[in-house]
Design a protein around this nucleic acid. Structure first.
Length: 259
DNA sequence: CGATCTTCCAAGCGTGACTG
DNA sequence: CAGTCACGCTTGGAAGATCG
């Protein structure tokens, strides 16, 4: 028998198929953390609720303690991207959205990005909150955009966060880095138009990783790492084992516990 | 040499953006 | 408005390390 304890209706089965004959005990917890209901069903019953069969995948890595407050993991951009960033015209403010496609002359070299963002280490801002992990990164994202010279903040949820600079921003307050659907060192092309005949790939993206400490209401940035996707795993140890984890997400019907 | 601590990393779970 | 699914933190099992 497997057990799952759920406050929400999002039941998630990791790295396994639903076993038709296995028993699954689903325990419903109320908002005030009390066990509200328990229902035991077979995998076959749950399989009926799986309408899409979609597996959500993620890669994970661990962030190891740093020697320095700020660390430029890769001194230069990838060879591929360097052909574009070496044409940077020195612009320090932009009139376009950070989610615009990159353009020739405006792409900063990785070192410039590092130099501009380093001063953010030591700063603090209000924690979007308790229970709001999804939003905590929002304020940092805003600050990074402002520091790099964008007039406003925008995030359309696509990769990378700041497409105009090919920069992906991460705020970590725990050591496990979840990388989502693509590994940073992937040679897959990015969904951007070619620039001067050059196709940007995932491994060309500059990863800006801040480590922060939460002290109640605020987050204080303690470390900065800037790396190319290509060099990412030279600094951050990729979780071995399965390498990629996949989960099946099943929304429990509203009346699931009433039957 | 058993008990306890630490490390590793997969599993677990909630949130919210997006979509139709 | 409900379903879908990606993002990101926390939890906890297991193995290895250290302690007494």
């Amino acid at each position: 028998m497997d057990t799952y304890v759920q406050k929400s209706s999002n039941l998630q089965i990791w790295n396994e198929d639903l076993a038709p004959n296995r028993r699954y005990a689903i325990i419903k917890v109320s908002q005030d953390d009390k066990i509200a209901k328990v229902r035991v069903v077979t995998g076959g019953t749950l399989a009926l609720l799986d309408t899409t069969g979609t597996l959500t995948r993620k890669y994970q890595a661990r962030i190891a303690p740093a020697d320095a407050d700020a660390e430029l993991v890769a001194n230069t951009d990838t060879d591929n991207l360097d052909r574009l960033t070496s044409q940077y015209d020195g612009s320090s403010s932009f009139t376009v959205s950070p989610t615009a496609h990159p353009s020739i002359g405006l792409l900063m070299p990785i070192r410039t990005i590092y130099d501009k963002l380093s001063p953010l280490v030591g700063s603090a801002f209000l924690d979007a909150g308790f229970d709001q992990e999804r939003n905590r990164g929002g304020e940092l994202h805003r600050r990074v955009c402002a520091t790099l010279g964008y007039p406003f903040h925008e995030d359309d949820g696509t990769f990378p966060d700041i497409r105009h600079q090919l920069v992906e921003v991460k705020l970590q307050t725990s050591p496990t880095i979840d990388l989502g659907l693509v590994t940073p060192d992937s040679a897959e092309p990015l969904d951007t138009p070619r620039l001067a005949g050059i196709q940007v790939r995932h491994q060309d993206v500059r990863y800006v990783v801040f480590y922060g400490e939460r002290d109640g209401a605020r987050v204080r940035l303690t470390n900065l790492y800037v790396s190319t996707g290509e060099a990412f795993f030279k600094r951050f140890q990729q979780f071995g084992g399965l390498v990629v984890n996949a989960k099946l997400q099943i929304p429990l019907p509203r009346l699931f516990f009433e039957d």
